[in-house]
Amino acid sequence: MNAITIEGIEKSYGKTVQALKGITLNIPQGEFFGLLGPNGAGKTTLISAIVGLVKPNAGEIRVMGCDIRKNPTEAKKYIGLSPQDININNYMPIGKIMEFQGGFYGVSVKESRRRAEELLKYFKLWDKRKAGRYQLSGGMQRRLMIARALMGKPKILILDEPTAGIDVELRHELWTFLKQLKEKGITILLTTHYIEEAERLCEKIGIIHQGKIIACESPLKLIEQHRLHEKAERSGAFQFVRSGSLEEVFVALTGRPIEEASKKSGEEKWEALPASLL
C-alpha cells in the first residue's frame, strides 16, 4: 500500500492563481521522498492539501488508504507535520506543548511525558522545557516543530523546508536523524529548495514547477536522464551549475537554477504588492 496517493489534485486561489495543476503522485511506505522546487512552485499548498489544511478544487488524496476528505481523523493519525511557517503556541511552555501534542494523537499522559522528555533531550531543548516560544532562537523553534511532529508516533513524517534558516552544523545533524527515522520504516516527505539536501537524503525526487510535477525519479536516474543534454547545452544557465548534479537536471527542466527561480518568485510577489495597495 502507498503511504500517500495523490490523484489529479488541482487548487486555485481566486480566479488568477492556479497553485496546483493536476498533480498525481504515489509515495510508497518507507520511502524518503523529496519535493524539490523553487518558492511559489506549489510545495506548501500540496503538503497543506495532504494534511487537510487546504481544500483542493479537484482530485483525491489518500493517506495509508484513507481519503483525507472523507475520513480526515483516521488519515491524520498517520501524519506528523512540521510546516514551513512557525506555528507554535505563544503562551505555553514548550514542555506542555509537547505533552498536549501527544494527547491530540491519543497518546496517554504518561507516555506523552516520557516521549516529550526523550525528544526534547534529543533535540537539545530539555533545558528550555519551561520556556515559551519567544525565549527560543529561530533554530530552536524549528527543532521544536520537528520534535512536536514526532509526538504522535507518525508513520509518515512531512517536513516542509525543515532546514530553512538553521545553521550548517544543525542541518547536518538533522540529516543524520532523518536517515535514522527512515531506517525505522517511517515514510518521509520532505520539501526543500536546497538541491544538496534532496540529493543526499531522498530516494526519489519529484520536481515541482509552477504547480506541476515535471519529473519524478531517483536522483541518480534523473541525473542520468538529463546528462544527455550536458555537452550540447553547456551555455546559458548551465554554465553556472555543477555538471552531473540535480541542479543541472533542474536547469534542464525549468531553464534556470533553483535559487534564481526562488528569487524570481519573491520578486514577483514584491512587485505585485504596491499595485494591490493602491
Binding site: 480526515p72 481523523t73 491524520k76 506555528n87 503556541n89 503562551y91 491530540f104 516560544r133
Partner: peptide, 17 residues
C-alpha cells in the same frame, strides 16, 4: 490567539474531530 500564532493549523492537522 490560535489563529494569530497559527497554532490553530497544528490543531487542524491533528486527528481531532
Amino acid at each position: 490567539m490560535a489563529k494569530f500564532d497559527r497554532s490553530l493549523d497544528n490543531l487542524l492537522a491533528a486527528p481531532l474531530k
